[in-house]
């Protein structure tokens, strides 16, 4: 897979980054090397192998669907944001 500046610009968009030219260039170079390294997996035969997404031994853990605790109050959480109005987090207009 060839990584070029266009790929990097697309990935930056997916990642919510605004990159300048110098950064785009550096990341193109770095990602080319990294993708080249991870592509060695092509050598490995995984035909018919089931994927593993997690290694936790337990199948599932159920609990009742109810509030167990409140570690932080609404006020404490709202205090962490830059702008607040009427007990809501304020953001600039979207449209």
């Amino acid at each position: 897979m060839e990584i070029n500046c266009e790929t990097i610009k697309h990935l930056a968009k997916l990642s919510d980054f605004d990159l300048d030219e110098k950064e785009t260039e550096a990341l193109t170079h770095d990602l080319q090397n990294i993708i080249k390294y991870i592509s060695q997996l092509d050598e490995l035969d995984t035909e018919g192998v089931e994927p593993t997404y997690q290694v936790f031994e337990m199948e599932n853990v159920w609990r009742d669907d109810e509030v167990l605790r409140q570690d932080a109050t609404r006020e404490e959480l709202l205090a962490l944001t830059k702008e607040e109005k009427d007990h809501q987090i304020k953001v600039p207009r979207v449209l």
Binding site: I8, L11, L31, I35, L44, P51
Partner: peptide, 23 residues
């Protein structure tokens, strides 16, 4: 973050992420 979004993106998911999960 960008490598992650690359290996998960459509067209590359099977070749990278799924392949790695099998490995």
């Amino acid at each position: 973050i960008m490598i992650g979004n690359f290996v998960l993106s459509s067209g590359f998911y099977d070749a990278y992420f799924l392949k790695a999960a099998k490995a």
